[in-house]
Design a protein around this nucleic acid. Structure first.
Lengths: 350, 350
DNA sequence: GAATAATTGAGGTACGTACATCATTTTGCG
DNA sequence: CGCAAAATGATGTACGTACCTCAATTATTC
């Protein structure tokens, strides 16, 4: 049996095509009893609207907005590039994504930006921002206005309407911990944990997971309190130099935030970085180069292209009220060593 | 500027819609000069046919066939299940995939099966089979008949027409080697490498990569010659028992093939499997359970859902002569530890 | 029970492409 | 030049859905 069409629905429900259309597109003016007849037919025939045909008829564009932090780190830039690429390859799926970058440190500006999105100009929004009360409320207002929302990379656990596309950072921290512990092996010593700021939920969660594993498997390896660089190169250089100098027993370093380059430079400036087991996050040109030279031992990462494509799929699914396969949207916590480094291809098409 | 349509093409090329159609669908009967005018317009306007509309008009179905080995291992079964799932979620993209399982050890049967596929019943084929001359030739004949081909999981390097969807097994072997070496750390001893049969190209390549890494980084850890189980439980139990008994210095075990369960059972039957660092391939319920208990230390895997979806995308792209993003089709060599084990969800929809 | 409101039906046009038919124009060839 | 063959144009229908208008039917209300 072929896929049922609206005609089949009409016949099955014993109503006209017009009424089926009214029900499907919620145009109103249909008696409740009739609505039920139609929805019953939908279930009975297992009808799913043909999105291609629907889009064609509507000649609609899905307008998506990605709200990214104003930060100039490599990871965020990779997301930006992946979005630009997606924009190109999505033209033929009637989807356009635009990018707005807002200072991550100013919740009011972010909320303001979100509130400025109106349902007639935007169909869906992906938000990458630290969780704050202002942002959470703005997301709830978005939802009320009927705009689809996705929490992107950073979870917004208190804004239930926002589906989260990203990794479990606590598990990511545990993964880093397990790998670091096993790479250090039998050696004695202490471990350094560095991040930009512990204000960020991501870093907090990673540290939590990291500590849990270290305490469980290698309690002999004490982990120093988290060091914060505040994304300030001078400060980073100084505190790293002091820490490494004062603690010659350090054997491992865990870089918790998105951007390793300043911290790694500070470590390298102290000479022989190979004597530490170093694990960081996000596969960028910086971490890639250091995996190859052996300066870094492993990178925990999430696939930027996957993040972007998955967000787009989820947003479109929510807009059209049609499902996606859950397993396809689960972002994996990837472990990258020198040996399984993916090729560094520029965008290309098959 | 909106997406150009065939009308725009006709206007730009100064021909009628009918001629544009003849060129686009290679119906013939168009002078070379005119063809060039149209293709020039296509490039100038950057025209790409609207596949949704085209599919709608054609009311066509993409009929894909997956040729899988007749083997009853967990990995192949997972592929089978993933294909069934894809079949469901693809109905609305006018794609149906059917699965044929053929004995992997009989190249003639496989070639025969391939030759039996006619262009009016099938649009694309994904082939998972060991590389042999018969299969290679059958693939070339498929291509000549105008059926799209993809080499699935197992590469067919000598059938150029078949795009390969799968991982680089040599790199996978290197990854396993690196991980095993680092997990073993400073310890002395030897390493066991086990597989079903070294006849398979996959195992050969993995062993190659594995040896390269071991020789380079931990030459003190001698690797025994590859042991072959021939997928025979009794034989497996026996040779594993003998090997472990005769070589008490063994510290690491690398399981190279798709199915670990028999070999792992044999190892576990000898008691204290935790004393070995054990790395295997493919995340299945067997490896998952052993990662959780700690019996296995790491699993190198490829995402089955990704393999399936990617093959389908590539096949459809070849059929419609439209591009896919290369980076999306690159199958990653994933490293799974207990900590980054993805949740074991049943198929669900968002 | 009549007037009014609410609901339903019938039918058309549109989206971008595929495909078919028939008419018309252009080209090549003797 | 004239004619057949080849090339091109013109036009219509179809795919499945959206959206519109107007007419016809049914409910509701006093």
């Amino acid at each position: 049996m072929d896929k049922p069409t609206t005609k089949d629905l009409a016949k099955a429900a014993g109503v006209s095509l017009a009424t089926v259309d009214r029900v499907l597109n919620r145009r109103g003016g249909v008696r409740q009893a009739t609505v039920e007849r139609v929805t019953a037919a939908i279930r009975a025939l297992n009808y799913v609207r043909d999105i291609s045909a629907a889009n064609l008829a509507r000649s609609t564009e899905y307008k998506l907005v990605f709200l990214l932090p104003d930060h100039d780190d490599e990871f965020t830039n990779m997301i930006h590039i992946a979005l630009d690429e997606a924009n190109v390859s999505m033209v033929h799926e009637r989807t356009t994504v635009s990018i707005t970058r807002v200072s991550a440190n100013d919740p009011h500006r972010i909320a303001q930006e979100i509130d400025g999105l109106s349902a007639d100009k935007v169909d869906g929004v992906a938000i990458m921002a630290p969780e704050t009360a202002q942002v959470r409320d703005a997301i709830l207002r978005l939802d009320a206005r009927g705009i689809a929302v996705v929490a992107f990379v950073s979870n917004q656990p208190n804004a239930q309407s926002a589906y989260f596309v990203g990794i479990n950072n606590e598990a990511a921290g545990r993964t880093a911990g397990q790998l670091l512990a096993r790479f250090i092996g039998e050696r004695q010593g202490t471990v350094l944990a560095v991040t930009e700021t512990m204000q960020s939920r991501d870093s907090l969660e990673r540290r939590l997971g990291f500590d849990a594993i270290m305490a469980k498997y290698v309690p002999r390896l004490r982990v120093h309190p988290s060091m914060e660089t505040y994304a300030d190169a001078a400060r980073t250089a100084k505190i790293i130099a002091v820490a490494l100098h004062n603690n010659p027993e350090i054997v491992g370093i865990y870089l918790m935030n998105h951007d390793v380059s300043e911290t790694m430079q500070a470590i390298e400036a102290q000479g022989i970085p190979q004597k530490y087991v170093i694990i960081g996050h996000e596969l960028t040109q910086h971490t890639r180069a250091r995996l190859i030279t052996g300066t870094m031992d492993a990178v925990i990462t999430q696939d930027v292209g996957h993040l972007v494509r998955s967000s787009i799929r989820v947003l479109k699914a929510r807009i059209t009220r049609i499902g996606t396969v859950a397993s396809q949207e689960r972002i994996r916590i990837e472990i990258i060593l020198r040996e399984n480094l993916p090729e560094d291809t520029k965008t290309s098409y098959l």
